[in-house]
Design a protein around this nucleic acid. Structure first.
Length: 680
DNA sequence: GAGCACTGC
């Protein structure tokens, strides 16, 4: 242990609320231990929700809307669709169950197919991007919420469906929030037009119940009662100035006192601090007295290679304690069994969006109460557990009650384009459950206007023919625009590649310890024309060796992301073919490609100033070239960039050298204003 | 001369 004269924070803990849930909140269902060894139909009947089956069916038969409350894993997601189907409710069409995440949709479909003793893709199926496991026989369909939203563009009344179940609604993803409005409107219109009614069920953990119920015509809230393993909550007596130190001390406090089979899950903010704390823990664990057992420390975050992520599921050797240091990936996406203790730093790294500057800032912030409960809940999935909050009870009381829904903190251009494509008559007054700010709506309309996607007549906004085509692409509007103008420059093939590369996580792997090697190996791809062309060179080389894994390793290319790029590209290319676009290659004439990029992404342009700094032309904010760019040492007069990242300075990332004439011809009026303003 | 939580179409 470090020499710390103060008593460790864990000693200062006092018991807080004795149970996980607050008073009056319903108790949650959780699957019983050992249930998986039983035959499948016995398992189904042992789920506590089974007791409520006939009552639930009676209620759901009559209701058009209902809000169902119950913890994830209660069995509600797998059982209720089956109950409806077995009771003949909604048999004329399909019962859809939406999920925020692909893996959830896929694994739930697998589970339910197994329970129905039916081959996956027949009665029970799933649809996610790049994968459709459904057939004409499919009646129970699990899908990502984004996928149902895409379908709604073709069929705004969702006529294939008789029931839509929006699961995990409390997560409030941007897709779920838009779907709320879409299903509500479809339901009303189908009623007005005397079509088969649409039943809408919203499933959630305990948060936001009133909001959901109010929004869906004051629909009844059905509570699924059951058992909940109690979780003891502890708060610190005093506010902690250093949550990392507090976490460290708490880990070893628990380690010295608790039986070794009890695992610890620590919620932290990011890769760097996780790796640093992991090293410190391992060092300290080496020098502990023999009375203390050994400890394995496992980091967990999304950018970790899959094989290393799997380590969190392996049980520690007997007598050894498992300590998992995780980002919020373990809040929802990854469920680890055997967790007895949760340590919650109370902090999270999250993106914030400033609609005025169009700037996204990634910053460390306090969690919401809802998030804190979600984290605590990870200690009580199989048995009673404890949660140590590294903040005082008063600090907890002052937290925001829920996380601000995604729709209120991101760029809305894509959402508005989608709503317009859905035929929503008055987008600015769309019936959002949580309305985004008027400024961010205005910014989005302006952006779409600049791209030529919309026409404005007074308050009326409608799609132009170009806008209609843009909405066909599962992309940010500016990327869709770039693809659509590419035939004019005879470079669609190259632009498809570049847009695909920009719309997934980076394909470049940069282990800091091998920096010199990375620089040397990457030299052969570098283009003086910028990062876009450099990426294109890497993709071309990757294709030349047919995606060889060994080649990826040698060249520090992330093969998982590169394969995803290829999949995205195929999808985008298919859409181009459906739209009848002329797909040509510019081959070696890469200036054509850059000119095309300038036409699609002119809103992200920057100009070199006489003093050697850069100014973003859109906002006149001072910006700088990110050191990871191949243009870092260069001083091009004009560039376009893919994104701005505000850290120590405001950095442009992924740059492409452009000619100012191209910008002028792409948006003459806009640049007359912008260039003039800069010079004055 | 930096350093990036998590999803998804």
């Amino acid at each position: 242990m470090p020499h710390d004269p103060d008593p460790p924070p864990a000693k200062k803990f006092k018991p807080g609320s004795p149970f996980f849930r607050l008073d009056k909140k319903p108790v949650m269902l959780l699957p019983r231990k050992g249930i998986t060894q039983l035959p499948i139909d016995v398992q189904r009947k042992q789920l506590p929700i089974y007791q409520a089956k006939s009552q639930l069916i009676n209620q759901l038969r009559q209701l058009h809307n209902a809000v169902l409350i119950g913890e994830t894993g209660s069995g509600k997601t797998t059982q209720i669709p089956q109950y409806l189907y077995e009771a003949g409710i909604g048999r004329q069409g399909i019962i859809a169950v939406t999920q925020p995440r692909r893996v959830a949709a896929i694994s739930l479909a697998g589970r339910v197919a197994e329970e129905k003793k039916s081959q996956l893709g027949k009665l029970v199926g799933y649809t996610v991007r790049f994968e459709d496991m459904t057939s004409s026989e499919t009646k129970l369909k699990f899908m990502t919420d984004g996928m149902l939203l895409r379908e709604a563009i073709v069929d705004p009344l969702l006529l294939r469906y008789t029931v839509v179940i929006l699961d995990e609604a409390h997560e409030r993803t941007i897709h779920t929030d838009v779907l709320f409005g879409v299903v509500k409107s479809a339901q009303r219109k189908r009623k007005e037009q005397n079509k088969i009614p649409l039943k809408v069920l919203v499933m959630s953990a305990t948060m936001d119940v009133d909001l959901f119920s109010q929004y869906f015509n004051k629909s009844p809230v059905l509570y699924l009662e059951g058992r909940q393993y109690p979780i003891q909550i502890y708060y610190t007596k005093q506010s902690q100035s250093d949550y990392l130190q507090a976490a460290l001390v708490s880990i070893f406090q628990i380690h010295q006192e608790a039986p070794p089979s009890h695992d610890i899950l620590v919620f932290m903010t990011g890769q760097e601090e996780i790796e640093a704390l992991a090293r410190t823990c391992r060092d300290i664990a080496k020098h502990l007295p023999d009375t203390c057992g050994p400890m394995t420390v496992i980091p967990l975050y999304a950018s970790l290679p899959p094989a290393q992520q799997l380590r969190v599921f392996q049980p520690a050797p007997k007598g050894c304690r498992k300590v998992i240091l995780s980002t919020n990936i373990a809040e929802t996406s990854i469920t680890i069994s055997g967790i007895k203790y949760v340590i919650d730093t109370g902090m999270v790294k999250a993106k914030r969006f400033n609609p005025d500057s169009g700037l996204e800032v990634l910053s460390v912030q306090r969690v919401s109460k809802a998030q804190a409960w979600q984290r605590a809940g990870r200690a009580g999935r199989e048995d009673a557990g404890s949660c140590y909050r590294l903040y005082t009870e008063e600090e907890f009381d002052n937290l925001a009650s829920m996380t601000v829904p995604e729709i209120q903190r991101c760029n809305l251009a894509g959402v508005l384009l989608q709503l317009l494509a859905l035929g929503v008559p008055d987008v600015l007054n769309f019936d959002f459950m949580s309305r985004p700010s008027p400024e961010s709506m205005r910014t989005a309309v302006e952006q779409l206007d600049l791209l030529g996607a919309v026409e404005r007549r007074g308050d009326q906004i409608s799609l132009t023919p170009l806008g209609k085509k843009m909405a066909c692409f599962p992309l940010e509007p500016r990327f869709a625009k770039t693809i659509l103008v590419s035939p004019e420059f005879s470079c669609a093939e190259e632009v498809l590649t570049i847009v695909s590369l920009l719309s997934v996580d980076s394909v470049l792997y940069n282990p800091p310890a091998r920096r010199d090697e990375v620089v040397a190996v990457r030299r052969k791809f570098v283009s003086s024309e910028g990062d876009h062309i450099t990426l294109l060179n890497i993709y071309r080389a990757f294709k030349k060796v047919s995606g060889n894994k060994e080649w990826c390793r040698e060249n520090f290319v992330n093969s998982r992301n590169m394969s995803l790029v290829a999949e995205v590209r195929t999808q985008l290319r298919d859409i181009c073919i459906k739209l009848g676009l002329k797909l040509e290659s510019s081959h070696l004439e890469l200036a054509k490609v850059r000119r095309c990029l300038a036409h699609g992404m002119f809103t992200n342009a920057a100009e070199l100033q006489p003093d050697g700094t850069y100014v973003a032309l859109d906002t006149h904010h001072p910006v700088a070239i990110h050191p990871s760019s191949v243009l870092f040492q260069a001083k091009p007069a004009y560039v376009i960039f893919n994104e701005l990242l505000h850290t120590s300075r405001c950095y442009m990332r992924d740059l492409c050298l452009v000619d100012p004439d191209w910008l002028q011809e792409a948006a003459p009026e806009y640049f007359r204003r912008k260039l003039h303003a800069t010079k004055s």
